[in-house]
Write a protein that binds this DNA or RNA. Sequence first.
RNA 1: GCUCCCUUCGUCUAGCGGCCUAGGACAUCGCCCUCUCACGGCGAGAACAGGGGUUCGAGUCCCCUAGGGAGCGCCA
Length: 482
Amino acid sequence: MSIRTRFAPSPTGFLHIGGARTALFCWLYARRHLGRFILRIEDTDRARSTDDAVQAILDGMAWLGLDHDEGPFYQTQRFERYAEVRDQLLSAGHAYRCYCTKEALDAMRAEQMANKQKPRYDGRCRKLTEAAGGAGGSDAPRRDGTAPVVRFKTPTTGQTIVDDAVRGRVVFENAELDDLIIARSDGTPTYNFTVVVDDHDMQVTDVIRGDDHLNNTPRQINIFKALGAEPPRYAHLPMILGPDGAKLSKRHGAVSVMEYRNDGFLPEALLNYLVRLGWSHGDQEVFSREEMVALFDISDVNQSASAINPEKLLWLNQHYIKAADPDDLAAELGWHFERLGIDVADGPALADVVRCQQARAKTMVEMAENSRFFYEAFAGYDEKAAAKHLGADATPVLMRLRDALEGLATWDVTAVHGAVNGVAEALELKLGKVAQPLRVAVAFGPVSPPIDQTLALLGRETTLARIDRALEYRDAESVAPT
RNA sequence: GCUCCCUUCGUCUAGCGGCCUAGGACAUCGCCCUCUCACGGCGAGAACAGGGGUUCGAGUCCCCUAGGGAGCGCCA
């Protein structure tokens, strides 16, 4: 049978980084084995599920390029099917109705806790129905007037074995498990039940999910068995922690995938970072999408939780920025400029800006911020830079530069380079003494791409205007008493 | 409390009994390159949680301890 995996998020928030990693591994495994990748939305908790969250999950996966072959399937649209299987279990004697009230259950749990026991359902209604002939009880209302819930009859003896693809063999004593609720008193199905029905109906061969589900697995396997079905293979992935080793949360900064785009990350960088969290292929650090697919092996997934390392993500992002096609990056840079409210219509071509900034930005946000001087004049100079480079001795340098640049026959990198170096030689100054004042004059701060490239992109008109402006600033400064 | 899982540099990890004087990457710190900022190049420091076994030999296998995590819902 060909491989079928699924990613089954519940739409209660955004697609967060841990979910994205799970989705990636499921996707990788399916692609690697030429199988199918199914997307299933687990929205049975209607109070907490939202359409916005569904959209956020779809957007996040699309941005990362994790395309699904089937779905999205919505559990809320399958209630009839769950009811059907529930009844099947009921009539086969694998499930029974439970008339215990919430209060009674709470009291039972409290008592068990007080006795230092594991809180679990003691099966009192199971004994009831078994004594009555095992019919599973009727739908008669309970003492509190509500309908009964339906519980699954978990085997009371023996063991359930999970042969996990990453954890190895994990053995659970059935006696440790209790009779879980598969249908609530309002008739809606619960998680452990819907998962089994869906994984079965959708013919999922490999369940790859977070290891917070490892403890649920024996319950699910038992339901599979009661249904007379073969359980899928399981692979439980280690958790992803925040940089400080604590559980990942909002206070760790970006947790939602789309926030990473806003912060200037490239999807290939995030994907590459994520694939190396809990998985490795020898010493290799950089993987293209194709390489990941070709090399991914579930048995290379490791078993311990890993902490997110923002610096390494940044490094990968810079790596992918450096390696990217300038024309592709131009579009992304344009998107970020738009977010910053900067109009790029009158400035240099975005792809040209990308070419000279690629090696000097760790994120696209940083690139946009360091490039805004190409498109808009700032209100003032960087204070420290102006004090250092636009002092009294800058005036003759700037005037000389202005003349040389104005007289240039052509305006390109080579010509500008010659002019600037010519001024430095004529004044017997080191290049830095000439380039820095010029840089502050045109870029308003101490940092820019190489000065010749910067001027070439800026154009003669803007360059000369900004030099004039710096000269005026100098005049004003020299009048003002210090 | 009970059940289950985990434990190699600060972090991500390689290691599947001898190749380990424990390798790589990020970060950090030096040096070089240099018109700024970067890129790049070279180099340095930095780890097998602890204790018992098994074995000629253990980071690698077993047990215990400690520490961390997850689950124990009419949440998923």
